[in-house]
Simulated assay, not measured.
Amino acid sequence: MRPAKEATLHQRILSDIEGRIVSGDWPPGHRIPFEVDMAEHYDCSRMTVNKVLTQLAKAGLIERRKRSGSFVSQPQAQSAVLEIHDIKAEVLSLNVAYAYRLIRCSKRKRRSDDLRRLDVPATASVLEIVCIHHAGLRPFCLEQRLISLTAVPEAANVDFAALAPGPWLINQVPWSAAEHLIRAMPAGAEDAEALEIARGTACLVIERRTWSGAGPITHVRLIYPGDRHALVARFAPEQSRPPN
Rank of each mutant, 00 (worst) to 15 (best):
V158C: 09
V91M: 01
D227H: 10
L9M: 11
G29M: 00
M38T: 00
A164C: 12
A162C: 13
G24L: 05
D119Y: 03
Y98G: 01
P165M: 12
D16C: 10
N157W: 05
P243E: 13
T48Y: 04
G213D: 03
R241Y: 11
S125K: 11
L195S: 00
N50C: 06
A59L: 10
E18F: 05
A151L: 02
R64K: 15
S106H: 15
K109G: 15
R199F: 11
L56G: 05
P174L: 08
I129L: 12
I182H: 14
Y224M: 14
V22L: 15
P167K: 01
E238N: 06
L181F: 09
M38E: 00
R101I: 05
L9Y: 00
R116L: 15
S93I: 10
T54E: 08
D191C: 13
A156W: 00
S68C: 14
C203S: 09
D191Y: 02
L142K: 02
L195Q: 04
S112Q: 14
A192K: 11
W168D: 00
A162Y: 09
P174M: 08
K66L: 14
D16W: 09
E18P: 06
P216R: 04
H85I: 03
A39Y: 07
L115M: 14
S176G: 11
Q144P: 02
A151N: 00
I147N: 00
V220F: 06
P139H: 04
L163T: 14
T123S: 15
A124E: 14
L149W: 08
N244R: 14
C131V: 08
Q55D: 10
I87E: 00
R209A: 06
I197E: 03
C141G: 04
I182A: 09
I197H: 01
W175T: 07
A122K: 15
I170W: 07
R228P: 02
C44F: 06
R138K: 11
D119C: 05
K51A: 13
E40F: 07
V36W: 12
G19W: 07
A189L: 15
A77I: 01
